[in-house]
Design a protein around this nucleic acid. Sequence first.
DNA 1: CCCGATCGGCACGGTGCGTGCCGATGGGCA
DNA 2: TGCCCATCGGCACGCACCGTGCCGATCGGG
Lengths: 198, 198
Amino acid sequence: MTGTPASPRRRGAARTEELLRVTLDLAAEVGYAGLSIEAVARRAGVGKHTIYRRWPSIAALLLDALSLVWTSDLDYRNAGDVRADLREQFLRSSLALSSPPIGPVYRAVIAEAQADPTLRATLHERFLITVEQSTLDRITRAQRTGELTAEANLEFAAEVLCGTLYYRWLLSTRPIDESAVDGLLDMFMAAYGSSNQN
Amino acid sequence: MTGTPASPRRRGAARTEELLRVTLDLAAEVGYAGLSIEAVARRAGVGKHTIYRRWPSIAALLLDALSLVWTSDLDYRNAGDVRADLREQFLRSSLALSSPPIGPVYRAVIAEAQADPTLRATLHERFLITVEQSTLDRITRAQRTGELTAEANLEFAAEVLCGTLYYRWLLSTRPIDESAVDGLLDMFMAAYGSSNQN
DNA sequence: CCCGATCGGCACGGTGCGTGCCGATGGGCA
DNA sequence: TGCCCATCGGCACGCACCGTGCCGATCGGG
């Protein structure tokens, strides 16, 4: 969705990236409430047209800004056993979700998406599917190594794992702390962990 | 006076209830996008002050409107086995979440809550805690009857069950259909169902 | 029966949205 | 090198909604 690499871009591409960074800075400073196109334009010293030429709405801009900081933190380590890897990844994710700029930007996009099914589909496709998939990859490996039972429906399991964390982040006042992650993993391992361990 | 059929100027509590019903009607007709204080006032033929005297924000109004239609559908049946009861309740809830007026109003409140931690706490306390608690009650009964293992941490389990449904409703494009509920219950029963069957 | 609380209606300044129109600018191409 | 025009910053517009203030009408309890 960002610049087309085929035709030689003029100064536009540089402006685009600069605008994304300004958006992230703005989110980190003033948070959710200040995330408007007017605010980004004002802060960047830019006409609103320059933004509207690139993104059709504030939500589209925020989606791209999110992509910029959505780094490889998503990749699960494959170091310890599956439970330890999941635990580490969930705690790391919860930290990202509760910190600027990801926290405010992500929350803003999710809120916008409640009013716009198309945006909801895009959000799901670009981020949530990715999150679920990386979780699914990790537990699929665990199933192949015998850490998880062969009968487990891992697709649903991945959705349950991710969904529970998002639920707590979005709708609960409780933090995603170690006890929450452990409780979730207790249930997951009780359901699908191989029983051949001691 | 305008051509509206004689609705005698009501006051106090009567006005309050009428405004809540107008809000629900509005939500059912125009959905999320049309839920503003101005719109409610316009539709009710009411000065904005009349609304602001009762609720400090559109979110507060929507919360009360939600309470009006948040009926005893929450109560679980205690008819069949625990899995059947959960299944029925989850499917019934998903129907409510996807229908007006509950769907649009609930979505609007959740979106507003993303920008307001205080509202998020209120929302959690008034609705989500209630949902989790009724689920917890049902599975606690099942644990006492021996349908679920004694070691299960049912508080986390209730959060996982509800959270997964909310996650799919808010952030996914997939519907909460029978296969989703079955998949979720498969995992839950695999984790905590008693193994003394057959 | 009357006084005061509540009402509907209107208007205000403020903010953000999305668009239209300027004149300036600077990079690609002849 | 120098021209041309897409892109730029800036400004303004109409619209919508917010939250507040004021007015005169209206209803109802004392």
